[in-house]
Structure formats: C-alpha cells, structure tokens
Amino acid sequence: MTAGETRASTVGWSGGHMRRDVQIGVVGAGAMGTEHIRLLSEQVPGARVTVVHDPDPARVALVRQRFPHVLPAPTSDELINAEAVDAIVIAAPDEDHESLVLRCLEAGKPVLCEKPLASDSAGCLRVVQREAELGRQLVRVGLMRRFDPVHRAVRDQLADGAVGEPVAMHCTHRVREVPAWFTGDMTFTNAAVHDIDVVRWILGTEIASVTVHSPSGPAVANAAFVDPQIVVFETLRGTVVTLELFLNARFGYQVTCEVVGTSGVVSTAQVASPVLLRQGRRSSGIDIGFQSRFASAYQAELTEWTRAVGGGDQPGGATAWDGYLVTVTAETCVRAAREATRVAIDAMERPALYDPRRDAQLDAV
C-alpha cells in the first residue's frame, strides 16, 4: 500500500460521513493561489487549507493575515511532504509546474495543478510517463471550463443527441487586454489551451490538424503582437472547428462556444446581468475577466476534487494526459501560425492508464 492509499483511507468517507476534512497545501500565493485558498476556506465543504508556500514572504503574510490557521512552509518540498497535507494545489509560476507535480507523485499525494501541466509538451510527457509507471491517476489539471454550468449543458445536450451529429463548432475567446510581457506564442500556449480542451471535451474526439489565419491589413502590418487570430481545427470525426482568439478586444471578456449539429444548434448562453433602461438607452454588464466569468466553475472544480480526494475516488476534470494533449495542440498552433500552413497533430499513443474503458472494466470487477 502506497503513502497515497494509506492517506486516502484515513481521510475518506465512512457510512456517508467524512472522518475529517481534507488537509490541503497550496504552493503559490499570488492571485490564483490566494483565490484558491479563499474558495477552499470559505466555499468548499470538507476542505481545510493547512499549509502554504510562496518564495515571497509578503504574500504568505497576507494569506495568514486573513487565514491565521494556515501555516507557512519554508520550501515547497516541506509542504509536499508535510504530515498535515493530504493533497496539494499548485498555483506557482508555469515553469515550476512540472517539477512540483513530479514531487507530488513521488510523495503519493493527489495534486490539482493550474494549467499548464508543464512549460512544454516534453515536460508534460515526463509527468504522464511517471504517473503511468506508478499506475495511479493522482494528477488533475486546472482546465476549469469543464466545471462551468453552461459548457457542461452544451456537452450534455450533444451527448443526449439533442442536435444530432456535430458537423461544426464555433468558439470565441476575447480578452479585454493582455500584459506587455505576453508574447504572440502565448496566444496559443497560454490562452487557447482552455479552448483546445473544451473542443476535445465537448465533442468527445481528438483534434487531428490545425490551421491558423492571421489578419494582414495595415492595422497589424508592423505589429509585434498579431491580434486577432482565427484557428481552424479538424477533428478525427470530421468536425470543423473555428476559434477566434482576440486578446486585446478592449470591451471586456467574452468566451462562447456553439455546436452545429445535423438537426439543431446548441450554444453557451451569455452570463445574465441586469438590463438597464435609462435616458433612451438599453445596457447590460459584461465580464471584464476570467475570475468573474468562471467564479462558479472554480468553486465547482475545487469542490469535486476535494470530495473525490476525501472519498478516495478518482476526481473528474482534466487528467495529466489531457494536459499533455492540450499542450501538444497549442505548440502545433504556434507552428501552424509561423508556417502559415495546415499542420497535423503529432502525439504519442495514449497509455493504458488513461483509457476510459479501463475505468469501466475496473468498476465491473
């Protein structure tokens, strides 16, 4: 029995009652880490944040000022191996994700890692291979749109056959603005990863090829950052998907997807806001960032993860394999944009650990 299995039996459910809260350590106390700590502490039943680590003592101090029970860890290794930590949330800088996840695997502890799983597909693959060697899925990647109610509704309607067979899908990802350090490649490797995951998850098939179309008018002729960009995905089942990435749209934040089927269309509804009628004008609010648009998704993601960890179950959400394929596809988008041509996805064969039929077979035993 591994350390993780022993821990799960200690934390798990018995007769419908949890023996104790899941003790969670959080690596990274920046904006995302702090928000995860807040949600886990205030809105996720069965969760208790016990330890936090961040290289910046000021960030840790701010967390402890609001949540005095959270203890500081001098290093990430001390947090990962602490007896007071059953599971870990990683919200550290992207370049640290791979190393941290691998250390969580060696400790036998479940981990929810913010995207990306690693800085590149090679790093993601190392995580996948190590997890496959261990024979247990301990990693989940924070691709939170899978927990958004409207995205789930679109997937459910499609799975129920409400619109027939999908023949086309249209997605938009518009952001008010991105920081000055945001590079053109990050349009795909940082922003589009969520859309890539949604396409795979909703359609239930893999992306086979990528083409990227960029504007070429005078407005972007000499621009260092090309915006917007239109991505065309072709799936293994023949569905054609368009994705508009507009990361300096100025007006606010907007994420949508629409699936066109052989007998109907299903799309994500815009998040409702009050409609104001005043002085001859009609207006309503628009989200200005992902934090407000996907607030309920983050809460649902953490709630499901905590419940599964506490019960010794396998959580829903994106696996390490999903994190790998998303990153491979994003890197293919970068290549397609540079070469201005259609590029096929080249990914390794899926390990048996991530075969969905494997779970069904285990459940039947």
Rank of each mutant, 00 (worst) to 15 (best):
S216E: 15
A87T: 04
H170K: 06
A208Y: 02
E234F: 05
Y298M: 14
A191I: 03
A92W: 03
V44D: 02
R48G: 03
F251M: 11
E83N: 15
Q254K: 13
G238L: 07
A118D: 07
D148R: 01
G289D: 15
M144E: 02
V275P: 00
A8K: 03
Q254C: 13
A84C: 11
C104I: 00
V241C: 15
A8Y: 05
N248P: 01
A87R: 13
V128G: 07
T341Q: 12
T34R: 11
M144W: 12
F233R: 14
R174L: 00
V260Q: 15
S267T: 08
G261S: 10
S209E: 12
D363F: 02
R64C: 14
Q270T: 02
F251N: 11
A29H: 01
A61S: 15
V11Y: 05
P68T: 11
G4W: 06
F246N: 12
D195L: 10
S209A: 14
E177F: 06
G311M: 15
E131T: 07
L62C: 02
D346S: 12
L277E: 13
R126H: 06
R357D: 11
A92N: 00
V51W: 14
Y324R: 14
R38C: 06
L243D: 03
R48K: 15
V326H: 08
G317N: 11
A58R: 09
D185K: 05
D363M: 03
D56K: 11
T50F: 07
T183W: 06
A249N: 08
P72G: 05
D77R: 15
S267P: 00
M18Q: 11
T303M: 14
V85Q: 02
V154T: 02
N190W: 04
T75Q: 14
F182T: 00
N222S: 12
R350D: 03
L112Y: 13
L62H: 10
Q229D: 08
V309C: 06
Y354C: 00
K109W: 01
D287Q: 10
T6W: 04
T329W: 10
T189L: 07
M186D: 05
S296Y: 03
L353K: 03
V49Q: 13
T187S: 14
R59M: 12
Q254E: 01
D94L: 10
G252V: 11
V111E: 00
P57M: 05
T75S: 15
V167S: 12
V220M: 07
H213I: 10
G285K: 04
A347C: 07
T75E: 07
G204F: 00
G312P: 05
A219P: 04
A132C: 13
G15V: 04
L158H: 04
V63A: 14
P166I: 06
Q65Y: 08
A360S: 10
R338I: 03
E98D: 12
V210D: 10
E114R: 06
D197F: 09
F67R: 13
H17A: 10
P55E: 01
V22F: 02
Q254G: 05
A337I: 04
Q279V: 05
A337Y: 11
Q361D: 06
S14L: 06
V232F: 07
P55M: 09
D96I: 01
R176H: 08
G217I: 04
H173W: 06
I88E: 12
R152E: 08
S284H: 12
W305L: 14
V52L: 11
G28F: 02
I90Q: 11
P356R: 08
E5P: 02
G12F: 03
R64W: 15
A153N: 00
